[in-house]
């Protein structure tokens, strides 16, 4: 393979297109006809289009040359994603403040400039600002902190 960016983008398209077709057919979405389209018509054709584009792209990736993809930032990717998901898990259960602290600490760890004291200060500061702006100011309805702490 000489152009990995094209090649992998092609495979990604092919995979997603194929998955959409598979789900549509397995789910029994009626196809109908062009005159009277069923719920499956549009997605199946689009899935075909995407797969075809993916094939062409992957072939081009094999045939032409291009720059390498480069290193994947797996650590930041994992930390940012995990932090965001944990935020969603925590926010309605324990409250906005702990959710923010968790997100900020995890995310900040992804930086090469990470310092514990600074990250904690940032987390607390952002939590305070967010509670003031969103809960006190705009009145969104999420808890601030766990009930045990009795806010």
């Amino acid at each position: 393979m000489r152009n990995p960016k094209d090649f992998w983008a092609g495979l990604l398209f092919l995979g997603i297109g194929g998955a959409f077709i598979a789900v549509a057919l397995a789910g029994g979405y009626e196809l109908g006809s062009a005159r009277r389209m069923g719920p499956g018509y549009f997605p199946v054709w689009l899935g075909g289009g995407l797969s075809l584009t993916g094939l062409m792209l992957a072939w081009r990736g094999l045939a032409t040359s291009g720059a390498p993809i480069g290193r994947w930032a797996l650590m930041p990717l994992g930390l940012v994603t995990l932090g965001t998901i944990l935020f969603g898990l925590i926010v309605n259960v324990a409250g906005l403040a702990p959710a923010i602290v968790v997100l900020v600490l995890l995310a900040a760890f992804a930086s090469i400039h990470f310092r514990v004291s600074q990250a904690i200060a940032l987390a607390v500061g952002l939590a305070a600002i967010s509670v003031l702006v969103f809960i006190k100011g705009l009145g969104i309805t999420v808890p601030v902190m766990p009930h045990v702490l009795g806010y």
């Binding site: 900020v104 900040a108 930086s111 090469i112 600074q118 990250a119 940032l122 967010s130």
Partner: peptide, 12 residues
């Protein structure tokens, strides 16, 4: 490194 955690918090 101070800005992006704030971006993440406000996005969420």
């Amino acid at each position: 490194h101070l800005l992006y955690p704030a971006i993440l918090v406000f996005s969420a």
